[in-house]
Design a protein around this nucleic acid. Structure first.
Length: 198
DNA sequence: CTGCAGATAGTCT
DNA sequence: GACTATCTGCAGG
């Protein structure tokens, strides 16, 4: 929706447990912005994160709004934990935990590594359609509930830093409660997003 | 580009 | 029993 500034870097050694925690134990909006440009790998496939959304415990759109349940347990794990859930009966969504009950939904990335396997899983060779949405991204990376509630600095996951990128923001997608909050973030000008920012 | 219908099943009320 | 942090295919501009 708006202009915005430049995000920060993840740090020199994001894979060390201490700095991973440092990076994620912050406000979900800050983390959502700073994740843009970072490289995510899952079992040898991945790329550059291009779109994220922030969710909070007191946010009606968040799975944590009514407190811990069987499904959302991973949202209360350590900062840097992974929370995966099924949506609409057929897709998976990937989140990174920040402070307890708050998380960042990983909505899109620019494919870089493991293109053949991602194309195979997605049934297309169009790069901009491989990971341009939370469900597509999980399908391309082979993500399902079997790798829920894990830390990002251990296999099958790996995350690495980026140089700062220009950030745009807008309203979150697909929600009805608290829908006006501008907590969706993307790399300005990226073609690898689920919907244009405007 | 935008909008809509339908698929599909786990979670929560 | 209702709802859902989605995707695809198709219609129309």
């Amino acid at each position: 929706m708006t202009t915005d500034m430049i995000n920060g870097a993840i740090g020199a050694d994001p894979l060390a447990g201490k700095s991973l925690r440092h990076f994620f134990e912050r406000d979900a909006i800050e983390v959502a912005r700073d994740l843009l440009g970072c490289h995510l790998m899952v079992n040898g496939a991945g790329g550059r994160i291009s779109e994220t959304e922030a969710y909070y415990p007191d946010d009606e759109a968040s799975h944590s709004f009514r407190g811990p349940t069987k499904r959302n347990g991973a949202m209360y794990g350590r900062p840097g934990n992974v929370y995966i859930y099924r949506i609409y009966g057929m897709y998976w969504c990937l989140n990174f935990v920040c402070t307890p009950g708050s998380a960042v939904l990983i909505r899109a990335l620019e494919p870089e590594t493991g293109l053949p396997v991602m194309m195979e899983r997605r049934g297309t060779d169009v790069l901009t359609q491989l990971c341009s949405g939370p469900g597509k991204l999980c399908q391309a990376l082979g993500i399902d509930i079997a790798i829920n509630d894990r830390t990002l600095d251990q296999p099958p996951y790996a995350i690495s830093p980026s140089a700062p990128v220009p950030v745009v923001s807008g309203k979150r997608i697909g929600i009805t409660k608290n829908a006006e909050a501008p907590w969706r973030f993307g790399i300005q000008g990226s073609r690898y997003v689920s919907k244009p920012f405007r």
